[in-house]
Simulated scan of single mutants.
Amino acid sequence: MANSTMVMEFLLLGFPDGWNMSLLYFMLFTVTYLGTLLGNLLIVTVTTADQNLHTPMYFFLRNLSILDMCFISVTVPNACVNSITGNRAISVGGCETQIFLVLFCACVELLFLSIMAWDRYVAICQPLQYPTIMNTQFCVRMTLASLLSGLVYAGVHTGNTFQLSFCQSNVVHQFFCDIPSLLWLSYSDITSNMILILVSIIIFGGGCFGLIIMSYIHIFSTVLKYPTTASVKAFSTCTPHILVVSIFLSSGTGVYLRSSANSDTLQDLIPSACYTMVPPFLNPLIYSLRNKQVKEAVMRVMGRQFFSGKRCRCISALS
């Protein structure tokens, strides 16, 4: 132990299966990243520009879209650059920052999804009380509380991880820095770290998932009293929401509770990609682009931009 050297940087193994597959992964990750940015940026633009979408539901949706763009930007661009350049080194400080940002975005993502499920419950099951409950002050407070909770959650787990000693292998079997991969690189006792992760998953993840499920159960029980078309619409809208949340939680839980983080097979990388890439990519499709109000708002905003540009060209021509 006296002759060991403390780790000054980590090496991200990235994608397995050789150069040809790495190029395929690069293309897949790049398309997913650009699609995520485009979809979420469209939502932010439309919900900001159209006055009809200045409601609590679209307020949280706009915040979720901004968060999703940040979430996927923490891991994917760096992974794509590393796969092409072959430079897989990341400093300890850079690794710490990446872990903190991933945990922060994941925590706030789950809280936003829970709040949005609660918003739909109030809107459908208690419509008369909706303006009173989901007022502007409540929405701002819940957003700030989610961000603060994310900072605390990420700070606790990141600080607890980097209190460990790393002086053996510095190879991270992942395309980004995550806690499980680092825990298995440390020669320190990681029992307290694993207990903290388990407790966090049970209390925080389980609590948020329970709130989402209960909200949708009440929504389903309410819409079943309505005509068939309303029931079908509610099921077609809520079921994809539950599916995305389930993918997010199950893949994230699988990553953090796996028995070994020293494998670089594709099967071990898929869960990490699922919880960091799938929700940001699918949320615009599920929450907005399938929504009639958003489609109409997109057409209105595009129409205003078109006629505004045409009017400016006419004025320039006359002058």
Rank of each mutant, 00 (worst) to 15 (best):
Y25F: 15
A49L: 15
L285N: 05
D50M: 05
Q305V: 09
F166R: 02
L38P: 01
I219G: 06
I133Q: 04
S263F: 05
A261F: 00
F100G: 08
N52Y: 13
S231F: 04
L257C: 02
M116T: 03
I195Q: 07
Y121R: 10
C167H: 11
S236R: 12
V232I: 15
C70L: 13
A79K: 05
L11I: 11
V81Y: 14
V294T: 14
E9R: 04
V102E: 05
V31Y: 08
G150T: 11
T55D: 09
G86D: 10
Q163H: 06
V294P: 04
C314V: 10
C274V: 09
V171M: 07
L64N: 12
G94W: 12
M57R: 12
G150W: 03
E109R: 07
F306K: 07
M6P: 02
I203A: 00
L196W: 07
V31A: 14
D119T: 13
W19P: 03
I124H: 00
Q168R: 14
T265C: 13
A230R: 11
R290L: 08
L151N: 08
M27A: 12
N160S: 06
I197K: 01
I212Q: 12
V92P: 05
R313K: 13
H54D: 13
L13T: 12
Q51S: 14
C125G: 01
A154T: 03
T45H: 12
L285W: 10
S149Q: 02
S221E: 14
N78P: 02
F104W: 15
C70Q: 02
V76E: 07
L64W: 02
V232H: 07
D68H: 06
L38I: 15
I195C: 03
I195F: 04
